[in-house]
Write a protein that binds this DNA or RNA. Sequence first.
DNA 1: CTTGCGCACTTGGAATTCATAATACAAAAT
DNA 2: ATTTTGTATTATGAATTCCAAGTGCGCAAG
Lengths: 224, 224
Amino acid sequence: MNRLETTTSISRRYLHDEVAERLRKLIHSGELEPKSRVNELELAERFGISRTPLREAIKILATEGLLELLPNRGARVASITNHEIDEMIEVVAGLEATAADLACRRITDEEIASIEALHHRMITAWKQGDHSTYFTLNREIHEAIMAASRNATLQGIYEGLSGRIQRTRYSAHKTPEQWHRAVNEHEAMVKLLKSRDAENLAKLMREHIRGKKQVILAAYGEST
Amino acid sequence: MNRLETTTSISRRYLHDEVAERLRKLIHSGELEPKSRVNELELAERFGISRTPLREAIKILATEGLLELLPNRGARVASITNHEIDEMIEVVAGLEATAADLACRRITDEEIASIEALHHRMITAWKQGDHSTYFTLNREIHEAIMAASRNATLQGIYEGLSGRIQRTRYSAHKTPEQWHRAVNEHEAMVKLLKSRDAENLAKLMREHIRGKKQVILAAYGEST
DNA sequence: CTTGCGCACTTGGAATTCATAATACAAAAT
DNA sequence: ATTTTGTATTATGAATTCCAAGTGCGCAAG
């Protein structure tokens, strides 16, 4: 009788999955600060669960790189060094270049139109000096291109990685020149996307994200 | 007295880490075939451990994508569809392109000489029709370029991903034309590496790996 | 001031228990 | 005979309890 896929709607997910998600939120929200130790008993009580699923969740987050395991001393929130951020930005640049390449081969006219609309709204926000809206639209454009790559594997890796630098990536303040350059690059990206020039869009995307590196690193340095 | 980092040498790693490693080997060796269910009790007894660390290991492998969790029915070895392999090859191509780009900026003359030596040995093996040696050297060249990128984050993602298609990737038999093309591309890669032409090497690398896609997919189709 | 001892706390792991979901199998009804 | 229903078995997800070992800390002795 059971239709399939009822799993997602009816039955609850794994407890350790929910715990992992709550833990991720705690970390991303900053409630659990980098380097802060995680007391299993304390957290288990806070979540109203036993240590078992919590420990499974900790192993998951450690695999994702959000927690570090200290032998016999539990786990602590992973702290990211500037060097690691540097590395991660290069990888993100590569992933987005790949997404750009694939998107050129698969994107629909409607999606391009949608991205173009986002782009124009972003330009408007920029001219009005509306940082918050600018950053949001900026992120949406990048995510739209990623989605247009139609590659779930790529998206999964991208999300896992960019989730760790998200806080700084889209909130980094630029100098007017940097800002102007970024806007120009976005302008060029839309053009290349419309002409579906995979090769050059990939190249530009890599450079575009590399161009943010200094800004992101500076912003990260501030926040720590 | 204990200096840090003795962890790796003196005290044994976490049990769940060792279990995870043994599980990975079982999967990669094919002893645990795709889609085969994993009986926790059976495996725990086989490893001589309790269910606790085994289940933590299972959660880790599930996060890595090597196992799939079936709610209330445990875990099974993840089976990869042709579509997923297609996706993974594109991502690997992107990662290797990124590695190529970075390598051009950081590689030493000694490393280039070493890669060139591998390349010549590979050519020799090719001319002698020595498939096994050819594949080994081919892989070593790609890994050497990845190492020359000096990006641990990139390498980590690459290893996690390529580990899942390794079995087919370097053992796929090519037609003479494909083989010839691959050798020519490798020849060009060494040239570009010597001239440290990041942009064109990245481009070529992406195309080079894409060129293997049909072969790998065909090889995977056979083995299943 | 340093050294050394001991104690409390936490973790990693094992073992046991329990509820529930899934599967197999047998019995009953049509 | 086929399908349906009900039951028994099994394995998982989670909790609980237990224990050994490692860490850190404090306190006392030298």
